[in-house]
């Protein structure tokens, strides 16, 4: 029987959640026995070309590209998991949500302390993703089946949830593994 397929995605996050995923250490050998990796930054596969059993996404949605890829994940994954504070609440990037986007851009690219007088320029290349007004949690865009809290969720949290799902059980986390930070 074919192994379940696992995809991981990265949106507006710091890659810390993916690092935590790698932090399962030698259990990764067990994992490759249990699943086949599909689209993921870990193997650099860029596109979905067959149905995937479990998708795990890191980061919130801050631009049009994030939104499009997240929808793609939802379309192709039977189970979709939001991993980490950024995916679940917007997290640290969502600190910008309390100020207008224009002000953020101006501070970053025109008026910041490291920008010389008159040197500033707000990036406007058509190839760049277009920023959204706010950083949104994934569940405000698509249906999310499970959320794994933490910044990042610890390797033990990810492992506990993943192994439960792979053996067809409902994941349940003990007290010490549920953290918002």
């Amino acid at each position: 029987m074919a192994k379940p397929r696992l995809a991981t995605g990265h949106f507006t996050g710091c890659f810390g959640c993916h690092m935590s995923f790698l932090d399962i250490d030698e259990r990764i050998l067990e994992l490759v026995e249990l699943v086949d990796f599909d689209k993921s930054p870990i193997n650099d596969k860029k596109r979905f070309d067959q149905p995937v059993d479990i998708g795990i996404v890191e980061g919130g949605v801050s631009n049009d590209e994030n939104a499009e890829i997240l929808r793609d994940f939802r379309k192709n994954c039977k189970i979709l998991i939001a991993m980490g504070s950024c995916a679940i609440t917007g997290g640290v990037p969502a600190l910008r949500n309390t100020m207008p986007l224009k002000e953020c851009l101006e501070e970053a690219f025109l008026n910041g302390p490291t920008i010389g007088e008159g040197d500033g320029l707000i990036p406007n290349d058509p190839d760049l993703p277009v920023l959204l007004d706010k950083v949104y949690p994934c569940q405000e865009f698509v249906k999310i089946d499970y959320i794994l809290p933490g910044c990042p969720p610890s390797a033990d949290t990810l492992w506990a949830a993943l192994t439960a799902l792979l053996s067809g059980e409902e994941p349940s986390l003990p007290y010490e593994l549920v953290k918002y930070d």
Binding site: S85, T89, V92, L95, P149, V178, Y180, D181
Partner: peptide, 29 residues
């Protein structure tokens, strides 16, 4: 934003969330 909060781990609001089974708020921010 608990990940960047100095009180995280010692905060009673957060701890109530843990004790009462909140994984994430179900309402929009």
């Amino acid at each position: 934003v608990c990940p960047s909060c100095e009180a995280s781990g010692d905060c009673e609001l957060q701890a109530l969330g843990y004790r009462l089974g909140m994984i994430a708020p179900q309402y929009p921010y």
